[in-house]
Design a protein around this nucleic acid. Structure first.
Lengths: 204, 204, 204, 204
DNA sequence: ACCTACGGGACGTCCCGTTTAT
DNA sequence: ATAAACGGGACGTCCCGTAGGT
């Protein structure tokens, strides 16, 4: 990797943090300059515009974020275990960057007009959901999850609950909402799992 | 001072729409001027700064938003029915303003630094949750909901899921995520309700 | 005269001074308030708008100005003497108000757009010129001025020279330009007068 | 810095037109913005204040104006011919800009208080007068003008008459006053010229 | 006639995104 | 990659003309 390419990557990484915290409009090139130690020209050498830099920064943040939510040592074992891990892992490390989940931030920031950013967020969402879906599908195929279960519905519910709970938790400064959702998921996982008697026995 | 107060209110209402769509940093006083038809002097007579206007606008948006989620003809009957209504009503009218849910938008927008906005969002969240909590508590008191149920947990889960699903729905331009969550709630409501045998009988 | 009418007149007189010095755009109602000791409401009771006050003020200034240039003890005797007096009197008391000749000021100030003020200036000019014309005409009728003389041309020349010289004099802070013009007029008056030999004899 | 200088010049030229028409107080930076197509930042980069811009604009207008009155193909031949040309040329092209003669406008506008503008007008006047004076002096030296003639007096009379006549002409919307003065000048030129018998012979 | 409220709009500062020259 | 230049435009202050209420 050339020196120029390294610099470019460094800019993206620093910018990603700032954009994730303050949003596109709330962050200036000056902020990026200070974070990278570069001068304006040094930034503009690598990106044609603030818009272009933002796209790269958000792309980076989103891809890293999705990777964290979809890879890890816990993605092994039974489908139920994997889903439980996905939830637990989200709660333990809710964000790669300061400023909250890039997916939610990008979604809210771009909902106004920016179609490029919106597409990036959409892609990230789809990727994450696809992973969760395939876990559920595998679980059904292996008889660990009830055959009537709807993978997409389960995946969407997991993502929605976690993102929503993260928003609440950040607002309140507590993990309580995240934990509340996690517990509720235990119930849902028991409900969709086939190993019914076990949970009923243990829960009551 | 009658007329001035009217004007002030009109500014707040127009500003609320714009701030909700574009966020604090993404919206200028010029935008507010255009939306209200006023000139700069006309706006700054009523608000000391953009910050102050934003606080009033967000307060207005949040209070209207919470009111919509917590009042309505459906808040009657059994607790389970009321919770079901809360979810259904959210999905049918997910936003008072263009630009999505003020609670989520404010939460994301203010997470950076603005403590005033953050407090507003926090208050709105607490109000909403309190209403849901009391529905659950009433349900427990009336024996419609299992005595082991945790009202706060249920309320947080409802809010988190709905907000998260709304984010997904807005991103994708479909109501699918919202509907997925709604269906999942049917399962949860059945689970926490005491009229157990009915659901089990009908579902299987 | 009522007290209200007196106040109105006082406002006009004070405003006339200020408008004559600073022009319509360069003078504020606040200035008028300070000059009269009245409050805003006190001024607006008598005039519907700044524009209306300005019209009255300029009308007053112009009429006073024209009166000064066309009335006086010197308007007696031969036509040549009267013209000489008109010139001398202008130079001795070039302005009723501080700020220069209202005619020139109004003409320059109103040349942009204000048709009401422009008309006032035009009327004042016509009045002044008419007086000078009739002096010349009388002179021709009495054989004191050459029959070939053009009254309007002479009147216009007198007014133009005096106004122009006043402008120069005010700019330079000297009366020299006014005196230069006065001397030149002696030559002209001699030229148009019929008592030719006298001047030739005395001048050479 | 090439481009900036061009922009600065363009601003001055456009501003000169507007200031000449409406005066300093009657013209806003907004007007200049519209005329130049620039935004506020673009204007204030080149001038520290409205005052500074006005000085440059008036300086430009005055210098252009004086140049027009003092240069041209007619400034050749006999002194009398040159003076005749000066008058004729003024009447034919009385103003470089819309809004009348910058000298008179500035003089009236600045008579209030602005010493910077006043000085500019004064300088312009002196320059113009100097040119006319030197023509007369040359005429005297060459024996074309009577040795008793006073150059400064003649120059002041020309300037005063023309400026005054222009004011009248603009007020009335006719060139009549200008023409009246021009004709009167024929008489004066004949009077101060040495080729006496010619005019007398032709006029009578 | 005073006083206050109201909305208009000019002025000037500051900083931002971008370009250019080095 | 730096640094300065450039023009855009947001922000907030101030005062102005005007309208009402007292």
């Amino acid at each position: 990797m050339q020196k120029g390419e390294q610099t470019r990557q460094r800019i993206i990484e620093e910018a990603a943090k700032i954009f994730n915290q303050r949003g596109f409009a709330g962050c200036s090139i000056q902020d990026v300059m200070e974070a990278t130690g570069l001068e304006k020209g040094g930034v503009y050498r690598h990106f044609a515009s603030k818009e272009e830099l933002a796209v790269e920064a958000f792309r980076y943040a989103l891809s890293l974020s999705v990777k964290m939510r979809t890879e890890g040592p816990g993605y092994a074992g039974s489908a139920i275990e994997q889903l439980r891990y996905a939830v637990r892992h989200f709660i333990e490390t809710p964000s790669v960057f300061p400023g909250g989940c890039p997916l939610m931030n990008t979604a809210v920031d771009a909902n106004d007009g920016n179609p490029a950013l919106r597409q990036l967020a959409c892609d990230a969402l789809k990727k994450w959901r696809a992973v969760l879906c395939s876990i559920v599908e595998d679980g059904i195929a292996h008889g660990e999850i009830r055959s009537g279960a709807n993978p997409r519905q389960i995946a969407n519910t997991i993502i929605a609950s976690l993102e929503g709970a993260l928003m609440i938790s950040r607002l309140e400064g507590t993990k309580r909402a995240l934990c509340d959702v996690q517990e509720m998921f235990e119930m849902i996982l028991a409900e969709i799992g086939t190993a019914r008697e076990v949970r009923l026995g243990s829960a009551e």
